[in-house]
Design a protein around this nucleic acid. Structure first.
Length: 772
DNA sequence: GAAGTGATGTTTTTT
DNA sequence: ACATCACTTC
């Protein structure tokens, strides 16, 4: 079906080279797009142009890295061509392939309702495997193992291929993990058995599908006749292999357009390689690949662009290009020197206030960018102090909180009971008396039978009582599986949380944290409801409101993707990585110190430093008008104070672009009261300042009860309302007692435990003396 | 089986 | 500094 686009005037918004990049739609195209060169505009206009030429929207596949980028692209296409935009397949590699796999998975031995394992699930499964294989967990560090598996997958090395590669096996032997190949093999087998794919599997299995099933491959080749890839410099070998499968074959038109900038490649650590850009030119040479270089920068002022050019010139390998600004030279780049991280925070926030007033900027014009998420803390404190609204992106997201993962695990189980990680997570939550020992028996049996835990759950030889609990649990989940098929995601979630007793368990915890958890869960429920209600107005294929669909979507979500509907005027705090593709009037890049930025982990290799430099390049080119760089002479790391040199990147920018402030003076005379702190290790004002914000700590334990006069009373005499004495916790009042006989638990309020006065204590064991 | 205690490692970045 | 994990005690 074709869409009529009334006017193609929009194309005149583009400069000459942009226009050629947007309208050359037949054959392979490589667009090398410098920062701020209107890349997104070219991409969206290109799609709009295609539609105006009679190409059907459903024939277009546009691959991006974040959901946010995809959404923005769709929105912008919609503004040009209207509702047809919805039919373009635009999304992240992971989400689009997950969608395809949801249809095609049975070909490769997976159920259509497969689970997506996140990094935590992966790590937990790997730990279990390492334990079962009785391997040393220092030598088989889960993080190392996980990343090695991920890298293998991104290079298309399956366990089978891995085991046949002498160089890798040798490497493992040297690193004292000779069994790695076996761990890898087992891991993949267990994932498959659990009907689960991790992030890399979404790509690897997609490739497998195209590789091994010609008819399926044929289907998608015909369907996606035009393919666009954004941020091509951040694709890995596997992603490029999939693209090639879809577009590079006998008789193909090879209508593929990749857009990227080698200077902005910042994901080598997860297998991305700019080799793909070079390979692309080679692979499509015979088919007349056209290369367009966008070198005009529309975003930043002169000093910023020139500084970026000077900086990136220090990198070895790159595609030659010169970015030009058209905005005049603008303000110089400010450099803040601070004594400590807290002084850095204060200076940055003060400058934000000043710029806001002087230039009439909004909060949303500002971004504070840092190398590691842990650095956000100080800036948050000072922003809060100044009543400036802000939002922290990244870090521990909503979806990583324990209670959210618990709820999601229950929901996952209702869709796919074979999901091993979900099962382990909730089987004893609330407490059902299924402990470690029982689970070890279940795991051993499952392993012996080569079956998922779920299937052997009611066949394990355990005490009658435990067996009864296990089979009750299994029946409950069976009920969920049934139920979920008849109702929408929201109703399903309510039903499951209620029936499982999870809600009741949460409600019993009336501490402040407990109430917080209840709130978190209820906001998750809200978001499920929102999912059910949303876009009813579009007559889209997206009308599937099942729990399965919601889960698939949520598994690939990061908190970058959450839309905060209320109050959208806030200062943005995020890592440099997450800032890719964004722009702000005023940008602060903070923590410019050796060991931090560049990271100490990169210092060994030149490539490592080059990647850090590209990262810094990305950071500074986010700024439109104002750029401020800052570093602290000392900061707390690992609980200890560290002194770092200023980042080498600062000296790679010509000083004519720079303006040093807040500097030498404060280095000599710390501004804040020296007399308050006489300790020689404390370096002046910084520490005193910091202390102001430090949270009160140190839990004071009450004085021990004198053991010689302590006489425990028989447990069955303890009643609600009594005043009792506990050998460690001191005096308390019994608020409630629940459970029967041996299982009787008392909730007691201990007045001497200021942090968490309420404790639940098992009466059978606790030594309590009745006072009155 | 659960809760409390002490030791230990961890931090780069994200779909 | 913080969280996770093995270990002990109830």
């Amino acid at each position: 079906m074709s869409v009529s686009v009334s006017s193609t005037d929009f194309i005149n918004d583009l400069n000459e080279i942009q226009r050629r990049a947007a309208t050359t739609i037949q054959g392979p195209v490589l667009v090398v797009a410098g920062p701020g060169s209107g890349k997104t505009r070219v991409l969206t206009y290109r799609i709009a142009w295609m539609l105006s030429q009679g190409i059907a929207p459903a024939e277009i596949l546009a691959l991006t890295f974040t959901n946010k980028a995809a959404r923005e692209m769709k929105d912008r296409i919609e503004r040009v061509v209207g509702a047809a935009a919805h039919q373009v397949w635009a999304g992240t590699f992971h989400s689009l392939f997950a969608r395809i796999l949801r249809i095609e998975a049975p070909h490769i031995g997976y159920p259509t309702n497969f689970t997506i394992y996140d990094t935590d699930d992966t790590k937990s499964l790997l730990s279990a495997i390492i334990k079962e294989m009785q391997l040393n967990k220092e030598q088989y560090n889960v993080n190392v193992v996980r990343s090695r598996i991920s890298h293998a997958k991104s290079k298309l090395i399956t366990p089978k291929r891995y085991a046949a590669l002498p160089s890798l096996l040798e490497e493992d032997k040297m690193a004292k993990r000779p069994q790695f190949a076996e761990v890898y093999r087992t891991y993949m087998a267990r994932c498959k058995q659990a009907g689960a794919m991790d992030f890399d599997d979404l790509l690897l299995r997609m490739y497998e599908l195209l590789q091994s099933y010609p008819s399926v491959c044929q289907k998608y080749r015909q369907r996606f006749r035009y393919i666009l890839v954004d941020e091509f410099q951040d694709t890995n070998e596997l992603q490029y292999a999939i693209i090639r499968k879809l577009v590079h074959y006998e008789g193909s038109q090879r209508n593929v357009c990749v857009v990227g900038d080698d200077a902005q490649s910042i994901y080598a650590f997860r297998g991305a390689t700019i080799q793909n850009i070079l390979d692309f030119q080679k692979d499509f040479k015979a088919h007349g690949v056209k290369v367009f270089k966008l070198e005009q920068n529309y975003r930043s002022t002169g000093h910023i662009v020139e500084a970026a050019n000077e900086l990136i010139a220090y990198n070895k390998r790159q595609i030659p290009k010169t970015i030009r600004s058209e905005k005049g030279e603008g303000e110089r780049i400010k450099v803040i020197q601070a004594m400590s991280e807290s002084e850095e925070g204060r200076h940055v926030v003060n400058l934000i206030v000043e710029q806001k007033n002087r230039y009439h900027l909004r909060n949303s014009d500002f971004a504070i960018l840092y190398r590691t998420n842990a650095q956000s803390r100080v800036f948050e404190e000072y922003l809060r102090h100044n009543n400036i609204p802000y939002r922290v992106f990244g870090g521990t997201s909503f979806y990583q909180r324990k209670e959210i993962k618990d709820v999601i695990a229950y929901l996952r189980l209702a869709i796919n009971p074979k999901d091993e990680e979900a099962l382990r997570r909730v089987i004893n939550l609330p407490k059902r008396g299924i402990g470690q020992t029982t689970m070890e028996k279940v795991a051993a049996m499952a392993q012996a039978a080569g079956k998922p835990l779920w299937e052997v759950l009611d066949q394990v030889p355990v005490a009658a009582r435990t067996a009864q609990v296990l089979s009750a649990f299994k029946n409950m989940v069976r009920g969920f599986v049934q139920k979920v098929q008849q109702i929408d995601a929201y109703e399903a979630a309510l039903h499951i949380l209620d029936q499982s007793g999870y809600i009741r368990m949460l409600q019993q915890d009336t501490t402040r944290e407990g109430l917080g958890r209840q709130e978190t869960v209820s906001s998750l429920l809200d978001s499920i409801q929102q999912f059910v209600d949303q876009d009813q107005e579009f007559e889209q294929e997206h009308t599937d409101k099942s729990l399965a669909t919601w889960l698939q979507q949520v598994a690939l979500m990061t908190d970058l993707d959450e839309s905060s509907s209320t109050d959208d005027d806030y200062v943005t705090l995020m890592s440099v990585h997450s800032a890719k593709g964004l722009e702000f009037a005023s940008v602060f890049v903070v923590g410019l110190e050796e060991h931090l930025f560049p990271s100490y982990l990169s210092r060994e290799s030149a490539e490592g430093i080059d990647e850090e430099r590209r990262l810094f390049y990305v950071a500074i080119t986010r700024a439109e008008r104002f750029l401020t760089l800052s570093y602290a002479r000392s900061r707390y790391q690992y609980g200890k104070q560290r002194f770092n040199e200023p980042s080498r990147f600062l000296s790679e920018i010509d000083s004519r672009h720079l303006d040093l402030i807040g500097s030498a003076k404060s280095l000599v005379t710390p501004p804040v009261a020296k007399h308050l702190d006489s300790s020689p290790t404390a370096s002046g004002g910084a520490k005193v300042q910091g202390a102001f914000y430090r949270r009160p700590r140190a839990q004071v334990l009450p004085d021990r009860v004198d053991p010689s006069t302590f006489k425990p009373s028989p447990p069955d005499q303890i009643q609600v309302g009594m005043r009792v004495l506990h050998i460690k916790f001191g005096e308390g009042k019994v608020l409630a007692i629940d459970g029967q006989r041996d299982k009787r638990m008392a909730t007691i309020f201990f007045k001497d435990l200021p942090q968490v006065p309420q404790r639940r204590i098992m009466l059978k064991f606790a030594k309590l003396q009745i006072l009155s």
